[in-house]
Amino acid sequence: MIPVAFGYHRPETLDEALALLGELGDEAKVLAGGHSLIPMMKLRLAAPLAVVDVGRLHSLRYVRDGGDHLAIGALTRHHDLETDSLVAQRVPVLRSVAHLVGDPQVRHRGTLGGTLAHADPAGDLAAVAVALDATIVVAGTTGRREVPAGDLATGYFETTLAPEEMIVEIKVPYAEAGEYQKFTRRAQDWAVVGSLAVRSRGTLRVALVNMGATTIRATAVEAALAEGTSAAEAAVEATVGTSPVGDLAGSAEYRQHLARVLTERALLAVERSERR
């Protein structure tokens, strides 16, 4: 399968990219790692008139220490997150989540900005951004704005990004112990359900993958934990506010069961690593 014909643009700088996006408006799609967009274009689920390939914007591929957070360039690849020493030290759970995305070939190409902009509720890395209250830095022709990670996605593959905007950086607060439980049917698959528990700034935070139209913060679990409830009891709350779909990988009820089980496992793993 090959994509429908499109106009191809390859800016060399961010300003050039933003000017192009401004000009082309909703005719254009940003092409970052291409590992969501190209599969969709091949299957003709997407047929943009123009593609703005930002692969040359090497200055957007970095991990920098911001003192209490990591500033990560939007074009940082999943494989960079797996291997970067600052990530391992400051947000270790980001490294382990990155390692579970797709397969090595996918991780060599896919980018953090791309996965967040794509807003697939089954995406793994958004769980880290949402649980930790990361800040998404968005640039457009008229300047920059910051969006809390939890407010970026508004529904399945829908975000608050305007067509002429680009994610340029993700600010991820430092985190301590964390655990991501990803349930898949086969090794390289997307999560049927995922649950991430991570401690940061003193509190335990929990995010759920593929339990609704967006990545969901399990606030009921967090509230129960804050009151001193055990991991097992708090995990029962994992289905509050969720609206999973049923599909070939599992029914909605099965997903709710998984959310509870995986959340308990994730919480217990965090407890264990903190006792060490």
Binding site: Y8, G34, I38, L43, D53, H79, P104, H108, R109
Partner: peptide
């Protein structure tokens, strides 16, 4: 057709990639 099988794997600047999931121009 779904970027799943890896039969198309080549090295791009030394790292494995699925060449069916990249434009040649990339």
């Amino acid at each position: 057709d779904t970027s799943s099988c890896g039969a198309c794997t080549v090295l791009l600047d030394g790292a494995s990639v699925k060449s069916c999931t990249m434009l040649a121009l990339q």
